[in-house]
Design a protein around this nucleic acid. Structure first.
Length: 475
RNA sequence: UGAGGCGUAGCGCAGUUGGUAGCGCGUAUGGUUCGGGACCAUAAGGUCGUGGGUUCAAAUCCCGUCGCCUCAACCA
């Protein structure tokens, strides 16, 4: 097969980004479509990425005092009606079980779209005294939201996520936790996923149904669109009042708790793909790459090559590197392209020539640079390179994003900005009509408030600006 | 849900005056190869998404239906 055929395997990233995305997720075997509309099978390669994300996040959550637990998938429908905004926001996309055991159920059961309600219900049973606060529980689970149209990782009927739920005695603590977990997300996104993110508060229109305030972490994809990659919600006493989460305080008074919640989902995998990928396919950041280094033998049947590869593999495994030795029959060129498409951070080429010279050729996926390194101490070299790649990927992504943030004074400015694939900062008076106007005219939405910046006038109505908002087209 | 596109071998596709299905890649076996998707030989693989209709005859024409992709609206 010639080069031309390979190029046809994935769509041109410049010309057809959506198709490129679909091609990449399917061809690299991250996912496959499930038999039910809107569902996806997360295949071993994709699930391995998720497991790495989970273990990095778990470590951070536990450091913040969270314990993992598991709440039921099925939630009584009546729970949803207890918080007015919540039911309004989620009702259209909730899947409901009406029959079981061959009979119609007396009360329909919702398949959780999120667990504030059932967790609120349980917290109310458990909580008695201020001494038991704060409660900090995280759960890893699947949730279901019946979306109209879907795309693997970005929007599917069922997806995997984590949701952290905590309850505090005071609003200040709950609010502080909301900000703290947003910082945890940011640190994780940047240092683990190598994705620079912009964090900030969401507008009323964009906030979580039932929250007092929602904060989001927005990441820029290569087409200039924004992907909401994580959110934290300050719920105030909304859910505490709806579910009767009360405690006896020091002063002997019964008080409602203040709660917050936060979550990130398998959508993060979509973020990885679209923030780092290139014309050859995936580019995975080393901390979450299922395979961090792949060893490709050249002229494998020549004496000593396989042995040398195995020796390098063993050495790297001992050093804690996730390494694969590709000893299949395909030609080296085929393997180069295959593993590049799969985004493996480092490729180690080892042939008779290298072995003679006591060296190995290492190719970085992010820059495609090839350099020969001594076999002696290769484990240390690889570990260092993985760290370099991680940092460089973050820097590269940061520069790309920073070069694509522009300011606008009016609607035309916002439109021009987003059409050229930028995030646009603009003033906003704070009224819903102006926010809707931006969306109607530019297809861009208010992503988050830009912290510490104040514009003079609203880009839509020209009145005094209350906020500076980052507008972008979003997934 | 609105607009557009598409369902033929695992993947990508060809196949209209309707006549009983083909190409490339991949797969299997054997051999030669191996520093950017190698080559030769042989072979396996299809109720043409699905239901109905027209016809002597349907992948092809008509009606319904299901699914997928993109854009728009909603969301992690």
């Amino acid at each position: 097969m010639g080069k031309e055929n390979f190029v046809e395997q994935i769509a041109d990233i410049e010309k057809d980004f959506p198709q490129w995305y679909t091609d990449v997720v399917i061809k690299t075997k991250l996912v496959d479509y499930g038999p039910v509309k809107g569902t996806m099978v997360i295949r071993p390669y994709g699930y391995a990425v998720w497991e790495n994300i989970q273990s990095e996040l778990n470590a951070r959550f536990k450091e913040c005092g969270y314990e993992n637990a598991y709440f039921p998938l099925l939630i009584p429908m009546s729970f949803f009606t207890k918080e007015a905004e919540h039911v309004e926001g989620f009702a259209p996309e909730v899947a409901v079980v009406t029959h079981a055991g061959g009979e119609e159920l007396s009360e329909p059961l919702a398949i959780r779209p999120t667990s504030e309600t059932i967790i609120g219900n349980m917290y109310s049973k458990w909580l008695q005294s201020y001494r038991e606060l704060p409660i900090k529980i995280n759960q890893w689970a699947n949730v279901m939201r019946w979306e109209k149209t879907t795309r693997p990782f970005l929007r599917t009927s069922e997806f995997l996520w984590h949701e952290g739920h905590s309850a505090f005695a005071t609003a200040e603590e709950a609010e502080a936790e909301t900000m703290k977990m947003l910082d945890v997300y940011k640190e994780f996104a940047e240092n683990v996923l190598a994705i620079p993110v912009i964090c900030g508060r969401k507008t009323e229109k964009e906030k979580f149904a039932g929250a007092v305030a929602t904060y989001g972490m927005e990441a820029m994809m290569k087409d200039g669109k924004s992907l909401q990659s994580g959110t934290t919600h300050f719920l105030g006493q909304n859910f505490a009042k709806a579910f009767d989460i009360k405690f006896l305080d020091k002063d002997g008074a019964q008080k409602y708790a203040h709660t917050m919640s936060f979550g990130v989902s398998t959508r993060l995998i979509g973020a990885l793909i679209m923030a780092h990928g290139d014309g050859r396919g995936l580019v995975l950041p080393p901390p979450v790459a299922p395979v961090q280094a792949v060893i490709i033998p050249i002229a494998a049947k020549k004496g000593g090559v396989v042995e040398a590869c195995k020796a390098v593999k063993e050495k790297l495994e001992k050093a804690g590197v996730r390494v694969k030795f590709d000893d299949t029959d395909s030609s080296p060129g085929w393997k180069f392209n295959e593993w590049e498409m799969k985004g493996v951070p480092l490729r180690i080429e080892l042939g008779p020539r290298d072995i003679e010279e006591g060296k190995a050729l290492i190719c970085r996926r992010d820059t495609l640079e090839k350099t020969a390194y001594p076999l002696d101490g290769l484990d240390k070299t690889v570990k260092q390179l993985l760290e370099v790649v991680r940092k460089d990927m973050l820097e590269t992504a940061r520069k790309r994003r920073d070069g694509r943030i522009v300011y606008a004074e009016d609607l035309d400015g916002i439109l021009n900005g987003v059409e050229s694939g930028n995030f646009v900062k603009a003033g906003w008076c704070g009224c819903r009509a102006c926010e809707d106007e931006v969306k109607a005219k530019t297809a861009a939405t208010a992503r988050v408030f830009a912290e510490g910046e104040t514009s003079k006038k609203c880009a839509v109505c020209g009145k005094k600006a209350e906020h500076t908002v980052i507008f972008a087209r979003a997934y």
